[in-house]
């Protein structure tokens, strides 16, 4: 999961115009891009349109891409640019700022494959609720950091903010979420002790 890069052979084949390789590259990143898209906006058609355009452009400019391009970083940054551009354009028509609309809790589902135990699940549920109360930018930064595993520098560039701001988003968000973990962890500790 950590910054998966396509094999250089795959990347090379794609640049030569191999559609199958292109599809594999799409398969590598589509899920993560969608996931990230949900953090930037709640507008699913907009996300899908943007991803569509992004890959069309990628295909069309394949001849100009270099061997060492950090494709993953490029895709995330372009996706965000596309979404915000369209959104800003739409704001002329729609008064409401989507940026300020908090995401609904119901839109997330916890995947429990890796964690076990009801307590851990409860902590994550709680974490999820608190996560939904964070500002959209904090949510986005956390997604880029803990799900997509970008470095703080990359996050700053993708989000189009300076390095300090990116760090601030992450740190402030972690501080808020930590309260959830702290209180519940104490509960977990007690449950753990009762076991003895």
């Amino acid at each position: 999961m950590l910054s998966a890069r396509p094999h250089s052979a795959l990347w090379h084949a794609f640049r030569q115009g191999d559609r199958a390789a292109f599809q594999q590259i799409y398969g590598l990143y589509a899920r993560d891009l969608l996931n990230y898209g949900y953090k930037v906006t709640h507008d699913v058609p907009l996300i899908e349109d943007s991803i569509h355009d992004l890959f069309i452009e990628l295909w069309q400019s394949r001849a100009n891409l270099s061997d060492t391009d950090s494709i993953r970083f490029y895709l995330f940054r372009s996706l965000r640019n596309k979404i915000t551009k369209t959104r800003n354009r739409d704001l002329f028509f729609q008064a409401a700022d989507i940026n300020d609309a908090p995401l609904a809790v119901d839109d997330f589902i916890i995947e429990n494959t890796l964690i076990e135990g009801e307590e851990v699940q409860r902590i994550n549920q709680q974490l999820l609720k608190s996560f939904a109360l964070l500002t959209p930018r904090q949510q986005e930064a956390l997604n880029l950091r803990f799900y997509q595993h970008f470095s703080n520098e990359e996050i700053a560039q993708i989000m189009g903010v300076n390095y300090q701001s990116a760090c601030r988003f992450i740190y402030a968000a972690l501080k808020t979420l930590r309260e959830v973990v702290r209180i519940l962890s104490v509960g977990l500790l007690w449950v753990g002790l009762e076991g003895f």
């Binding site: 996931n35 949900y38 997330f108 589902i109 916890i110 974490l127 996560f131 799900y147």
Partner: peptide, 10 residues
């Protein structure tokens, strides 16, 4: 860290 990773799954 683990919780944040888990809850981001869509």
């Amino acid at each position: 860290v683990t919780g944040l990773r888990e809850i981001q799954c869509q």
